[in-house]
């Protein structure tokens, strides 16, 4: 199955729900305010948020006027273009050319960090990369075991210490091990934490500092994992995590349900953090690089193939 098919399959349900509404909005109608109002509501229903939805609709309206579009059926094209412009170009992962690339994975509780790491490890291992995992979620019960199961499944080593030990020390160990074993990639799992817990955020800053010290340029990527069903709090998460650990990319998970992941729009718009991956299920292959155009196409134009 090709990459796009997988993406389509995963987003099928979300697409169907959104598409139905959009089709009824667009079909056989003249372009008047009510069309745009409904479009706005549909965007809000996708967790795009009130402000960003209004801005998107305004941009779509401007662009439609510029292109002299008169029928509502022609709006999806405009929508896709406007969304793609907002989302920006695809953002590839940064890699360290001379030594291991260190990836720090952060997020709130239950966002899907550990699962994402398992899938990331699999993706890179399939490319022939040598991957090592750091079990730096030393807080949650059985989090280390969960990562080890993934390590076995994928066939990569997991650096770990006992539960309750210092997560920064685990990251330190993992970077040392990666250097010694000439690994290409170190992926560090961290405990889920709500962004309003200052002491936990300080801990995260410390983990980052240790990585910086042990390897110049590290961490090369700091990925914030956001549950695709998250509402407007996702924007707060992005803002705070960005401030504390300089997030370089977003991973949106659980998009195989009916959630649309619309929260990425305000995150990109207000925080300027690119989306790098999307998660579409619990299988090893269910993680895909984020393609803004595909994402927008899948949302706005369900029937035409790209």
């Amino acid at each position: 199955m090709g990459l796009f098919d997988r993406f389509r399959k995963g987003l099928e349900k979300s697409r169907a729900a959104m598409a139905d509404r959009l089709l009824s909005v667009f079909r056989g109608r003249k372009l008047d305010d009510s069309v745009f109002d409904e479009m706005e509501e549909t965007l809000i229903l996708s967790d795009v948020g009130v402000d960003t939805a209004a801005e998107l609709v305004e941009a779509i309206r401007r662009e439609a006027r510029r292109r002299r579009i008169e029928r509502a059926e022609d709006l999806p094209d405009v929508m896709v273009d406007v969304m793609v412009e907002l989302l920006g170009p695809p953002a590839p992962m940064v890699e360290n050319p001379d030594g291991p690339t260190v990836v720090l994975v952060v997020g709130v509780n239950g966002a899907g960090k550990t699962t994402t790491i398992g899938k990331l490890a699999h993706a890179y291992k399939s490319q022939g990369k040598r991957v090592i995992l750091a079990a730096a979620d030393t807080f949650r019960a059985a989090a280390i075991e969960q990562l080890m199961v993934w390590g076995e499944r994928v066939g990569v080593d997991v650096v770990r210490q006992a539960q309750g030990s210092d997560p920064a020390a685990v990251v330190y160990d993992a970077i040392q091990a990666a250097k010694a074993r000439r690994c290409d990639l170190v992926i560090c799992d961290t405990a889920g934490r709500l962004q309003n817990k200052a002491h936990l955020m300080n801990e995260l800053a410390k983990i980052r500092k240790v990585a910086e010290r042990e390897l110049p340029g590290a961490p090369h990527e700091v990925l914030l994992v956001i549950d695709g069903t998250t509402g407007q709090n996702g924007l707060v998460q992005a803002r705070v995590f960005k401030e504390v650990v300089r997030v370089t990319g977003i991973v949106v998970t659980k998009l195989d349900g009916t959630a649309k992941g619309g929260i990425v729009f305000p995150i990109v718009r207000e925080e300027g953090i690119p989306v790098k991956w999307i998660g579409l299920g619990e299988g090893m292959d269910d993680l895909q690089p984020f393609d803004p155009r595909m994402f927008a196409e899948a949302i706005c134009r369900p029937e035409t193939r790209v």
Binding site: I44, D47, T229, T230, G231, T258, A259, I263
Partner: peptide, 12 residues
Amino acid sequence: VDAMTGQDAVHV
């Protein structure tokens, strides 16, 4: 239900 859930809570 996660308190952070967005619009999709209705479907769930």
